[in-house]
Design a protein around this nucleic acid. Structure first.
Length: 812
RNA sequence: GCCGGUGUGGCGGAACUGGGAUACGCUGACGACUCAAAAUCGUCCGCCCUUACGGGAUUGUGGGUUCGACUCCCACCACCGGCACCA
């Protein structure tokens, strides 16, 4: 194994002046971390006159296992970007905090009896140390913690604003229930039928729950995406699909035996005359209200019972096999053809949560209806011919189907916009979360806790164990539950559900602007100064969770004139996940977890960070592999030697050499600057490596060294600061300015100019970049090799690309 | 099934707006230094034919556009991610 420190970099290369000190990352990194902390190098000013940049990375959950490679990647990217922006003259805030509510701390408490507050505190201290050891330029003066009552006071306050705006409501309904975590889940937390957190199959359970009316914002959330040109298209598309807007119609079908109507939503009103049956979801209320008329109600109820017991996975498993039961004794009438009697079925392929929970089935045009019709031998009526014209549709015959969508809707129903997005199930039956600030009074009903009584502090409990009955452990603490109604002052009970983990993160970036404010969640002037976030680094996995939720909260607060920006994040920069050396997801059970603490100890944080960036493009997934890290370490060793040697050497005597270094430097500054702005971090490292191999034998002035170190600083800050100090620098490199690029120096005196014959490279010559076609031809056509090749052939065409190539097109 | 992404040497990857494919790094080979090894430094290193000079094919596959295609168009294959009975 190559131990980095066993190398004697001091002896390296051809005999030159001895470099006394060797590169010892351990002492250097500790030294500069302390320097930055004491000098408050990275604390952002709320009052500076400089233009601002708000750079955000997703704050971590402080787990007992510490931070992992999945944190290192986006944090390094954000850190490089922030340091670069400071050098470019922006007042840059790069804040950090802790998303510390959540199940692991609670489960740890259940197992070991340690209060989550205690373990969280310990884990936070640990993670913070870790981040500092990575040389991150976070502004710790703005640190927030979602479990801090001074913080969640405002999470609760925002909840009350939602409540007052009619956007938070209580309802009893079938919700997704995780049997292992023993809590309800939001739709977004169910992924492929399993709990997003623990992987258990999700069940349905009827519970009284708090919901947030995110569906009211479906259109705004969708429309907002159009004003986010700097968001990657895949992220926007994923949100768009999640919101799932469809245009269609609502049509009422009369139930023949009664005065009741069955309302359906359809995107294909043009196929109305192809309806041969209808289907309602098992939960549909029509079954109860007409149960006395349904002859086979017993069979129907049995079907409903089994259907509702099945998990989503079980429902999905027998994908194509549709089941259902006909509601005997009732039938519907087709609008537009009173004579047509339409049978009604109950079947679980119709979802209660979408549309009206009932459909008109058109087996000729819908695959699922077709499968169902086949199984139950129901008729199929073609209503659209090969040319898209309506047939078998009475007076609509011959109409184009697109036109018929409108005309049939106008006659029999009304236009309707439908979304897939569902309201956000916002209560959890667990302990370690923000208490929902609501009081239930027998007389006054649901009463919000008055704002002056916030925060509703999470009480200490003895048992953290979830009850599993749908009540949170808080329900067991009578002294806390029993309280006075703020309205009538009679005895009342507190809401015992807590908020989901996503609550605290739905507004945290706002608090960074004004973390200590006691009067309001954030002062308007502070918000005005810093928001919106300019760049948000984070993972794709949050696209339909945190990213959607926080956009929702921001839009609500914006509508209430509490935050200035209508969208919270100007630009989103997603990263690929970091896999283990074997190319599999890192996991303890697979034993392929690479711990950043081990790597940074052995190789140094500077090396680790640079290697992380060097592994591959920021957006694609990479497999962490120790194999190549030595290359980055070698690069830093070479930097160390080069700078140190030049520090003892006399400055360059030759004008030519000085010019070469200067040109290489300008090229480097230009390339690295451009590549950071496009988040192409891997190529910045390549460019720096190339630079060093070009100049390592050449003498450089201190001023040139300093400029190089400024370029290196965002990536390998510790070694850059140390070297700057060695060559006499008196302040942190962070306080320098990004070097100017002289465009003239980027031009080469001579470029490689290629000569092609019929598109194939045949020769290479050197030419000034601005050589004309005539000049190029006069040289090329006199080359012996070209003459030989052209011998006896007819020149058809000559293509000249200035500074690049001359392509001679010839015929035999 | 639908939506999105990716495919380049032994490996990670680079390539501007259509203009030298394989930069940079790892691995490997040889050499210098050393008593020796490590480290360091130097040279070489995708494939096929050729002792060499040189030549040929090549960016998942097949076709097309073009003087010229990793890059643009069409079809297909493989892998990754998201959604998944959304009417």
């Amino acid at each position: 194994m190559n131990k980095p420190n066993s190398s004697k970099a001091t002896k390296g290369g051809k005999a030159g002046p001895k470099v006394r000190k060797k590169y010892n990352h351990k002492t250097i990194e500790a030294k500069w971390q302390e320097y930055w902390a004491t000098k408050k190098t990275f604390v952002a000013s709320d009052t500076s006159k400089k233009p601002k940049k708000f750079i955000l990375v997703e704050f971590p959950y402080p787990s007992g296992y510490g931070l992992h490679m999945g944190h290192l990647r986006p944090y390094t990217a954000g850190d490089v970007y922030s340091k670069f922006m400071r050098l470019k003259g922006f007042e840059t805030v790069f804040p950090m905090g802790w998303d510390a509510f959540g199940l692991p701390a609670e489960n740890f408490a259940i197992k070991h009896g340690v209060h989550p507050e205690v373990s969280t505190k310990k884990n936070v201290a640990n993670a913070k140390k870790q981040l500092q050891s990575w040389g991150m330029s976070f502004d710790w003066s703005r640190e927030v913690n979602t479990t801090d009552p001074d913080y969640y006071k405002w999470t609760q306050w925002i909840f009350l604003q939602l409540y007052k705006a009619g956007l938070a409501y209580e309802a009893t309904g079938l919700i997704n229930w995780c049997p292992k975590d023993k809590t309800g889940l939001a739709n977004e937390e169910v992924q492929g039928g399993v709990c997003e957190r623990c992987g258990s199959a999700v069940e349905k359970k009827e519970l009284r729950q708090w919901y947030l009316r995110i569906t009211n914002y479906a259109e705004k959330l969708l429309a907002g995406l159009r004003h986010l040109p700097e968001w990657p298209e895949p992220v926007k598309l994923q949100q768009e699909n999640w919101i799932g807007k469809s245009l269609g119609a609502e049509i009422d079908f009369h139930i023949a035996e009664t005065h009741e109507k069955l309302k359906v939503f359809t995107t294909r009103p043009d196929t109305l005359f192809g309806v041969t049956f209808m289907v309602v979801a098992p939960e549909h209320p029509v079954i109860k209200s007409l149960s006395s008329r349904i002859h086979n109600i017993k069979e129907v109820n049995e079907y409903i019972d089994t259907a509702l017991q099945r998990t989503e996975i079980e429902r999905g498993a027998d994908d194509k096999e549709k089941t259902g039961v006909r509601l005997e004794g009732i039938h519907a009438i087709l609008p537009g053809d009173e004579a047509r009697e339409i049978p009604i079925f109950v079947a679980d392929y119709v979802l209660f949560g979408y549309g009206t929970g009932a459909i008109m089935a058109v087996p000729a045009n819908d695959e699922r209806d077709g499968a169902f019709a086949k199984k139950y031998h129901l008729p199929v009526i073609q209503v659209i011919d090969d040319n898209g014209k309506l047939i078998n549709s009475r007076e609509f015959n011959g109409e184009d189907f697109e036109a018929a969508k409108k005309s049939i809707t106008a006659r029999f129903g009304k236009g309707k916009i439908q979304y897939k997005l569902r309201d956000w199930v916002f209560s959890r039956q667990r302990y370690w979360g923000e208490p929902i600030p609501i009081i239930h009074c027998e007389q006054c009903g649901v009463v919000p806790v008055p704002e002056k009584d916030l925060p509703v502090v999470l009480p200490k409990v003895k048992k953290y164990l979830p009850t599993g009955t749908g009540e949170s452990p808080l329900a067991g603490i009578e002294s806390w539950v029993n309280t006075k109604c703020p309205k009538c002052k009679k005895s009342a009970k507190r809401e015992t559900n807590t908020m989901p983990q996503w609550a605290g993160s739905s507004w945290y970036w706002l608090r960074y602007t004004d973390p200590k404010n006691k009067k309001i969640f954030a002062d308007k002037k502070r918000l005005q100064r810093w928001t919106p976030v300019d760049i948000y680094f984070g993972g794709m996995e949050h696209t339909t969770l945190h990213l959607l939720y926080s956009r929702f909260w921001n839009q609500v607060l914006h509508d209430q004139k509490l935050v200035p920006a209508s969208e919270p994040y100007d630009k989103r920069v997603p990263h690929g996940i970091v896999l283990g050396p074997d190319g599999d997801k890192m996991s303890k059970s697979k034993g392929n977890v690479v711990d950043p603490a081990v790597i940074s100890k052995q190789w140094g944080s500077d090396t680790m960070r640079m290697y992380m960036l060097f592994l591959g493009p920021h957006g694609s997934q990479v497999a962490w592999n120790d194999q190549g890290i030595i290359g980055v370490r070698r690069f830093l060793e070479r930097v160390w030697v080069w700078v140190n040697q030049n520090n003892v050497k006399r400055p360059a005597s030759s004008v030519k050499v000085a010019h070469d270094v200067e040109k290489a430097l300008h090229k480097l500054v230009d390339k690295v600057g451009k590549d950071i702005e496009s988040f192409s971090f891997n190529t910045t490292i390549s460019a720096m490596m190339q630079f060093i191999s070009e100049v390592k034998e050449l003498p450089a002035s201190k001023e040139q060294l300093r400029r190089f170190l400024i370029v290196l600083f965002p990536f390998a800050s510790h070694i850059a600061e140390e070297l700057n100090h060695i060559i006499g620098g008196k302040k942190s490199l962070q306080n320098e300015q990004w070097p100017e690029v002289n465009k003239r120096l980027l031009k080469e005196d001579l470029v490689d100019f290629i000569v092609q014959i019929n598109g194939k490279v045949r020769e290479k010559i050197q030419l000034p970049p601005d050589a004309t076609q005539e000049q190029a031809e006069s040289i090329v056509l006199n080359l012996q090799k070209i003459k030989d090749t052209l011998e006896g052939r007819q020149m058809v065409r000559k293509i000249f690309v200035p500074g690049r190539l001359l392509n001679l097109v010839v015929k035999l």
